[in-house]
Write a protein that binds this DNA or RNA. Structure first.
Ligand SMILES: [Zn+2]
Ligand SMILES: [Zn+2]
Lengths: 332, 332
DNA sequence: ACACAAGTAC
DNA sequence: GTACTTGTGT
């Protein structure tokens, strides 16, 4: 694990710094209750006569949010899985993070600590981090990620005393603000960073994902990413993106995808006869032949069309093949 | 296929008798609209002041409906899959029926023709057939079978203009009456048999199942059966039971279960080390060591405890093993 | 962690 | 129909 703006650092064992955080624990419903919500309980009553102020427009939750990463003036960076009892050998991991693929594999409802770092700013109090889940596939990129019907069911145990029934991506933080962009329909969760705890140089926030990637009628086996935007006065001043797969066997699935990545690098790519693992990982996507997935580390767009060796292609590359191709250009 | 009260008859090719019925067709939503419903639209308003008549109690939809088969005075019998273009070679089958296992394998939402036969009664008009879906496992036998949240979602395509959102088991018949037993909570569908069509000796009704056996939050991979009761004046005067599995690959799954049935008959049974196919078929059940499943042809209960050869058992037989055991006693 | 079940893409 | 994916029971 490493800060994403310095992605090739070695692992940083920081578990002992946060002994009180247990990311594997069940979601504590009472934490939700305290959370302030900027959503009205009834989403239908949006135009109450008193509420005439136009809701603020925010690029970060627009129809097609950018997934280009930049650290910005505050040198915004994040670190997955820091301060986690996850690192302890005796604790069963409920999530895995692959630095190589910049992808989080997590069980539904498990808390994942994400640590944010800021420089050039003494006062963090007006800095907020927004987390938004999006679909990777360009076909779906404009579709808000919604919870499936089963998980939205108020009688579902994950919704006990939980006002954020519609949010796949939630946050175990008492000041978390759950928002719905009424123009795009996207759900996101915003947290004020606050000061890092004494002696710490980053602030750690627990996130959890309350639908599976496979949830029928919801994500439906589509690939997703979390977009973290650093915001000040409703303006985006930093952005990072992490791939995420919510599944029952994070370790198995990560290993599977890593194995595919390594055994197929450049060998399987030039050939047609597409087979196993159509996309980045085993999740199959319906459409294929897409341009660069928006989730890999920022690439000059020109490379998409100009840097491809003009080898003969018998069928269009699918999502995964394109991902892998650019991945190998970057790291191979 | 054969009438169930004469289960070892040969196949009866009757497809040509009902050339107009296409069981493989998509559910026609408009058929639903005409169906009269005895359920109030809003299930909450049960005690409206005008509606003081106590709702009729019916054994057939009680907490623990009997699954014992009997043909009764009217020699009630049924036949699966009659009059079906399903029999034609060029039509892709959306369901399979195993006479050997008395089990229907069907894709979700596909119409399955079930033919009912009555004797000793010139006027069929006051005879009704109720169809009720129940769980086989005694642990769940008292639990009403409900649709899963996803399929109940009004925006789900299977619910277009369909008032019977809560019913897994539906019926393509314009006079179908959808009922909910307010004591047990069970959903059932009732059809007046009417006269058989000219030249026919049975009445054929199309049923469909609108959740999968695997539906999370619904049937959840539990085994189910359909109970067909012949009723006259709200009294049960005949009963037949058919196992049913609602799945994506009826043929594959039927073959799988048949294979297991044949290869394991008596060989695998006496041994512990239980593994593959815990239950009747591949659907795993949570609990095990149950008595006789209620769906096999009626057996003297005494046989359960007395006819078992007292072979040494290292672990309790699970549901499937018990099913298989009695199955082999009957037919083996 | 393994084996299997059961949906989905091709 | 085949192969693969991905949840579940053990
Ligand atoms: Zn879900
Ligand atoms: Zn369902």
């Amino acid at each position: 694990m490493s800060f994403l703006n310095t992605p090739l650092d070695g692992d940083v064992p920081l578990a002992e710094l946060h002994p009180s955080i247990d990311p594997g624990a069940e979601i504590n419903a009472s934490d939700y209750q305290i959370a302030s919500s900027q959503e009205s309980e009834n989403e239908a009553e949006k135009e109450s006569p008193d509420d005439v102020k136009p809701p603020p427009f925010n690029q970060a939750t627009g129809e097609m949010p950018s997934t280009e990463e930049f650290s910005g003036h505050y040198e915004f960076s994040l670190l997955m899985g820091v301060g986690s009892v996850n690192d302890a050998k005796n604790v069963k991991k409920s999530w895995e993070y692959s630095l190589k693929m910049n992808k989080l594999y997590v069980k539904v409802g498990s808390a994942v600590p994400v640590s944010f770092k800021i420089n050039n700013q003494l006062d963090w109090s007006d800095l907020k981090v927004r987390a938004l889940l999006v679909y990777d596939n360009p076909d779906d990129a404009r579709t808000p990620v919604e919870r499936c019907s089963s998980h939205k069911d108020p009688s579902h145990k994950s919704n006990k005393d939980c006002p954020n029934v519609n949010h796949v991506l939630c946050c175990q933080h008492r000041n978390a603000s759950y928002e719905r962009d009424q123009y795009s329909g996207r759900y996101s969760v915003v947290v004020a960073l606050g000061e890092p705890q004494a002696g710490a140089t980053y602030a750690t926030i627990l996130y959890m994902l309350n639908c599976k990637s496979s949830c029928e009628g919801g994500i439906s086996r589509r690939n997703t990413s979390i977009i973290f935007t650093l915001e000040k006065n409703n303006k985006v001043c930093g952005r990072h993106v992490v791939h995420v797969r919510i599944c029952s066997c994070p370790k198995r699935d990560m290993n599977q995808e890593q194995e595919f990545l390594s055994c197929s690098t450049s060998s399987m790519l030039s050939r047609g006869k597409k087979r196993k693992l159509d996309h980045f990982g085993p999740i199959r996507i319906k459409s294929e032949g897409y341009p660069l997935p928006s989730l890999l580390p920022p690439l000059p767009v020109s490379s998409l069309n100009s840097d491809l060796p003009p080898q003969p292609r018998y069928e269009p590359l699918n999502y995964m093949e394109v991902s892998l191709h650019f991945f190998s250009l970057l790291y191979g």
